[in-house]
Protein backbone atom coordinates (compact mmCIF):
# COMPACT_ATOMS: atom_id res chain seq x y z
CA UNK A 1 0.00 0.00 0.00
CA UNK A 2 1.25 3.46 -0.96
CA UNK A 3 0.30 6.25 1.43
CA UNK A 4 0.78 9.90 0.63
CA UNK A 5 0.59 11.85 3.89
CA UNK A 6 0.13 15.62 4.08
CA UNK A 7 2.39 16.22 1.06
CA UNK A 8 3.56 19.77 0.45
CA UNK A 9 5.83 20.86 -2.35
CA UNK A 10 7.15 24.39 -2.70
CA UNK A 11 9.41 25.74 -5.44
CA UNK A 12 11.52 28.85 -5.35
CA UNK A 13 11.04 30.44 -8.74
CA UNK A 14 13.07 33.49 -9.80
CA UNK A 15 10.94 36.66 -10.01
CA UNK A 16 7.87 34.74 -8.75
CA UNK A 17 9.14 33.82 -5.30
CA UNK A 18 7.82 30.75 -3.51
CA UNK A 19 5.20 28.78 -5.43
CA UNK A 20 3.21 26.07 -3.62
CA UNK A 21 2.56 23.36 -6.21
CA UNK A 22 1.07 20.84 -3.77
CA UNK A 23 -0.64 21.87 -0.53
CA UNK A 24 -1.08 19.07 1.96
CA UNK A 25 -2.24 16.26 -0.34
CA UNK A 26 -3.09 12.94 1.32
CA UNK A 27 -4.31 9.74 -0.29
CA UNK A 28 -3.83 5.99 -0.26
CA UNK A 29 -3.21 3.69 -3.22
CA UNK A 30 -4.15 0.05 -2.77
CA UNK A 31 -2.53 -2.74 -4.84
CA UNK A 32 -4.89 -4.16 -7.47
CA UNK A 33 -6.87 -0.92 -7.65
CA UNK A 34 -6.28 2.02 -9.96
CA UNK A 35 -5.94 5.40 -8.27
CA UNK A 36 -6.70 8.30 -10.60
CA UNK A 37 -5.28 11.72 -9.86
CA UNK A 38 -7.61 14.14 -11.59
CA UNK A 39 -7.46 17.84 -12.19
CA UNK A 40 -6.80 20.53 -14.75
CA UNK A 41 -3.35 21.60 -15.92
CA UNK A 42 -1.39 23.18 -13.08
CA UNK A 43 -3.38 21.36 -10.39
CA UNK A 44 -0.23 19.72 -8.96
CA UNK A 45 -0.73 16.21 -10.38
CA UNK A 46 2.67 15.93 -12.09
CA UNK A 47 4.48 17.33 -9.05
CA UNK A 48 2.74 14.78 -6.84
CA UNK A 49 3.65 11.92 -9.18
CA UNK A 50 7.26 13.09 -9.50
CA UNK A 51 7.48 13.16 -5.71
CA UNK A 52 6.14 9.61 -5.54
CA UNK A 53 8.87 8.71 -8.05
CA UNK A 54 11.40 10.48 -5.75
CA UNK A 55 12.42 12.79 -8.58
CA UNK A 56 11.34 15.58 -6.21
CA UNK A 57 11.78 15.65 -2.45
CA UNK A 58 8.77 16.81 -0.44
CA UNK A 59 8.90 20.20 1.30
CA UNK A 60 6.75 18.70 4.04
CA UNK A 61 4.93 15.42 4.65
CA UNK A 62 5.91 11.91 3.71
CA UNK A 63 5.11 9.05 1.37
CA UNK A 64 5.06 5.52 2.76
CA UNK A 65 5.22 2.25 0.88
CA UNK A 66 4.47 -0.86 2.90
CA UNK A 67 4.74 1.34 6.00
CA UNK A 68 8.21 2.72 5.29
CA UNK A 69 9.15 6.14 3.99
CA UNK A 70 10.20 5.90 0.36
CA UNK A 71 12.78 8.64 0.97
CA UNK A 72 14.76 6.48 3.41
CA UNK A 73 16.13 4.45 0.51
CA UNK A 74 15.34 6.14 -2.77
CA UNK A 75 17.28 3.68 -4.92
CA UNK A 76 15.42 0.68 -3.47
CA UNK A 77 12.11 2.49 -4.04
CA UNK A 78 12.96 3.35 -7.65
CA UNK A 79 13.91 -0.25 -8.31
CA UNK A 80 10.31 -1.33 -7.70
CA UNK A 81 8.90 1.65 -9.57
CA UNK A 82 7.88 2.23 -13.16
CA UNK A 83 7.36 5.80 -14.34
CA UNK A 84 5.91 7.06 -17.58
CA UNK A 85 4.39 10.30 -18.77
CA UNK A 86 2.65 11.45 -21.94
CA UNK A 87 5.61 13.69 -22.67
CA UNK A 88 8.22 11.02 -22.04
CA UNK A 89 10.72 10.85 -24.86
CA UNK A 90 12.70 7.86 -26.04
CA UNK A 91 16.24 7.83 -27.36
CA UNK A 92 15.77 8.45 -31.07
CA UNK A 93 19.02 6.83 -32.16
CA UNK A 94 18.51 3.61 -30.20
CA UNK A 95 16.43 0.56 -31.12
CA UNK A 96 13.52 -0.37 -28.80
CA UNK A 97 15.41 -3.35 -27.37
CA UNK A 98 18.45 -1.17 -26.63
CA UNK A 99 16.27 1.31 -24.72
CA UNK A 100 14.71 -1.46 -22.62
CA UNK A 101 18.08 -3.13 -22.04
CA UNK A 102 19.65 0.18 -20.96
CA UNK A 103 17.03 0.75 -18.28
CA UNK A 104 17.24 -2.89 -17.24
CA UNK A 105 20.96 -2.45 -16.68
CA UNK A 106 20.42 0.80 -14.75
CA UNK A 107 17.96 -0.99 -12.49
CA UNK A 108 20.44 -3.86 -12.03
CA UNK A 109 18.22 -6.46 -13.70
CA UNK A 110 20.14 -9.58 -14.70
CA UNK A 111 20.82 -10.08 -18.41
CA UNK A 112 18.76 -13.27 -18.77
CA UNK A 113 15.78 -11.59 -17.09
CA UNK A 114 16.05 -8.57 -19.37
CA UNK A 115 15.97 -10.89 -22.35
CA UNK A 116 12.99 -12.99 -21.21
CA UNK A 117 10.98 -10.02 -19.93
CA UNK A 118 11.53 -8.06 -23.11
CA UNK A 119 10.24 -11.01 -25.11
CA UNK A 120 7.08 -11.11 -22.96
CA UNK A 121 6.56 -7.34 -23.23
CA UNK A 122 6.95 -7.42 -27.02
CA UNK A 123 4.21 -10.05 -27.19
CA UNK A 124 1.96 -8.24 -24.73
CA UNK A 125 2.20 -4.88 -26.52
CA UNK A 126 2.37 -6.39 -29.99
CA UNK A 127 5.64 -4.60 -30.74
CA UNK A 128 7.20 -7.20 -33.05
CA UNK A 129 6.98 -5.06 -36.17
CA UNK A 130 8.79 -2.05 -34.70
CA UNK A 131 11.84 -3.79 -33.27
CA UNK A 132 13.99 -3.20 -36.34
CA UNK A 133 13.37 0.54 -36.42
CA UNK A 134 15.24 3.13 -34.44
CA UNK A 135 12.95 4.95 -32.00
CA UNK A 136 13.25 8.22 -33.92
CA UNK A 137 11.43 6.60 -36.85
CA UNK A 138 8.46 5.45 -34.77
CA UNK A 139 5.02 7.08 -34.44
CA UNK A 140 3.92 8.67 -31.15
CA UNK A 141 1.92 5.59 -30.20
CA UNK A 142 4.80 3.25 -31.02
CA UNK A 143 7.18 5.40 -28.98
CA UNK A 144 4.78 5.16 -26.06
CA UNK A 145 4.92 1.35 -26.38
CA UNK A 146 8.72 1.57 -26.17
CA UNK A 147 8.33 3.72 -23.06
CA UNK A 148 6.10 1.09 -21.50
CA UNK A 149 8.60 -1.64 -22.38
CA UNK A 150 11.34 0.45 -20.72
CA UNK A 151 9.14 0.92 -17.66
CA UNK A 152 8.25 -2.77 -17.34
CA UNK A 153 11.71 -4.23 -17.83
CA UNK A 154 12.42 -4.20 -14.08
CA UNK A 155 8.98 -5.72 -13.36
CA UNK A 156 7.91 -2.83 -11.09
CA UNK A 157 5.39 -3.21 -8.25
CA UNK A 158 4.33 0.43 -8.47
CA UNK A 159 3.34 2.06 -11.75
CA UNK A 160 3.20 5.86 -12.00
CA UNK A 161 1.44 6.93 -15.17
CA UNK A 162 1.36 10.67 -15.79
CA UNK A 163 -1.21 11.40 -18.52
CA UNK A 164 -0.10 8.25 -20.41
CA UNK A 165 -2.55 8.65 -23.29
CA UNK A 166 -1.70 12.29 -23.89
CA UNK A 167 -1.44 12.98 -27.64
CA UNK A 168 -2.15 9.40 -28.69
CA UNK A 169 -4.62 8.30 -31.35
CA UNK A 170 -7.61 6.11 -30.47
CA UNK A 171 -5.89 2.80 -31.28
CA UNK A 172 -2.74 3.61 -29.33
CA UNK A 173 -4.82 4.89 -26.41
CA UNK A 174 -6.73 1.63 -26.37
CA UNK A 175 -3.44 -0.33 -26.14
CA UNK A 176 -2.37 1.75 -23.15
CA UNK A 177 -5.78 1.44 -21.46
CA UNK A 178 -5.70 -2.34 -21.92
CA UNK A 179 -2.20 -2.47 -20.50
CA UNK A 180 -3.34 -0.51 -17.42
CA UNK A 181 -6.23 -2.90 -16.87
CA UNK A 182 -3.92 -5.89 -17.26
CA UNK A 183 -1.53 -4.42 -14.70
CA UNK A 184 -4.42 -3.96 -12.28
CA UNK A 185 -5.23 -7.63 -12.72
CA UNK A 186 -1.65 -8.50 -11.79
CA UNK A 187 -2.06 -6.68 -8.45
CA UNK A 188 0.22 -3.74 -9.25
CA UNK A 189 -0.02 -0.49 -7.32
CA UNK A 190 -1.24 1.95 -9.96
CA UNK A 191 -1.37 5.74 -9.84
CA UNK A 192 -2.66 7.42 -12.94
CA UNK A 193 -3.03 11.10 -13.62
CA UNK A 194 -5.33 12.45 -16.29
CA UNK A 195 -7.38 15.46 -17.18
CA UNK A 196 -9.65 13.30 -19.37
CA UNK A 197 -12.46 12.54 -16.91
CA UNK A 198 -14.18 9.97 -19.12
CA UNK A 199 -10.96 7.93 -19.15
CA UNK A 200 -10.77 8.14 -15.36
CA UNK A 201 -14.40 7.12 -15.02
CA UNK A 202 -13.72 4.05 -17.16
CA UNK A 203 -10.45 3.02 -15.52
CA UNK A 204 -10.21 4.17 -11.93
CA UNK A 205 -11.41 2.57 -8.72
CA UNK A 206 -10.28 5.42 -6.49
CA UNK A 207 -9.71 9.06 -7.37
CA UNK A 208 -8.07 12.13 -5.96
CA UNK A 209 -9.36 15.41 -7.30
CA UNK A 210 -6.77 18.18 -7.27
CA UNK A 211 -7.18 21.85 -7.95
CA UNK A 212 -4.57 24.59 -7.51
CA UNK A 213 -2.38 22.25 -5.46
CA UNK A 214 -5.10 21.19 -3.05
CA UNK A 215 -6.66 17.75 -2.78
CA UNK A 216 -10.42 18.39 -2.85
CA UNK A 217 -11.40 14.74 -2.57
CA UNK A 218 -9.70 11.41 -2.30
CA UNK A 219 -11.39 8.06 -2.03
CA UNK A 220 -13.65 5.58 -3.78
CA UNK A 221 -14.95 6.81 -7.14
CA UNK A 222 -18.30 5.03 -6.78
CA UNK A 223 -18.89 6.59 -3.35
CA UNK A 224 -18.06 10.02 -4.74
CA UNK A 225 -20.52 9.62 -7.56
CA UNK A 226 -23.28 8.21 -5.38
CA UNK A 227 -22.89 11.12 -2.96
CA UNK A 228 -23.59 13.36 -5.96
CA UNK A 229 -26.56 11.22 -7.08
CA UNK A 230 -24.60 9.50 -9.89
CA UNK A 231 -24.21 12.56 -12.07
CA UNK A 232 -21.26 12.33 -14.56
CA UNK A 233 -17.79 12.71 -13.06
CA UNK A 234 -17.23 15.91 -15.03
CA UNK A 235 -20.21 17.51 -13.30
CA UNK A 236 -18.97 16.25 -9.93
CA UNK A 237 -15.58 17.80 -10.66
CA UNK A 238 -17.07 21.20 -11.45
CA UNK A 239 -19.26 21.04 -8.36
CA UNK A 240 -16.20 20.30 -6.19
CA UNK A 241 -14.07 22.99 -7.81
CA UNK A 242 -16.96 25.46 -7.65
CA UNK A 243 -17.53 24.74 -3.98
CA UNK A 244 -13.89 25.30 -3.17
CA UNK A 245 -13.13 28.37 -5.27
Amino acid sequence: MLEVKDLWKRFKIPKKGIVEAVKGASFTVTPGRIFGLLGPNGAGKTTTLRTIATIFSPSKGDILYKGKSIFDDKLAHRKRLGFISGNTGVYDRLYPEEVAKYFGKLNLVEDHLIKSRFKEIVEMLNMGDILKSRCGKLSTGEKQKVSIARMLINDPEILILDEPTNGLDVISSRTIVNFIKESKGKGKTLVLSTHILSEAEYLCDDVGIMHKGEMLYSGDLKELRSSYKDIPLESVFFKLVGEET
Binding site: R78, S85, L106, S147, N154
Partner: peptide, 12 residues
Protein backbone atom coordinates in the same frame (compact mmCIF):
# COMPACT_ATOMS: atom_id res chain seq x y z
CA UNK B 1 13.78 15.46 -25.62
CA UNK B 2 11.89 14.47 -22.45
CA UNK B 3 14.17 11.55 -21.57
CA UNK B 4 15.77 13.01 -18.46
CA UNK B 5 12.73 12.52 -16.25
CA UNK B 6 12.72 8.75 -16.79
CA UNK B 7 16.46 8.60 -16.14
CA UNK B 8 15.95 10.43 -12.84
CA UNK B 9 13.26 7.93 -11.88
CA UNK B 10 15.63 4.98 -12.48
CA UNK B 11 17.42 3.32 -9.59
CA UNK B 12 20.59 5.38 -10.00
Amino acid sequence: RGTLETLLAASI
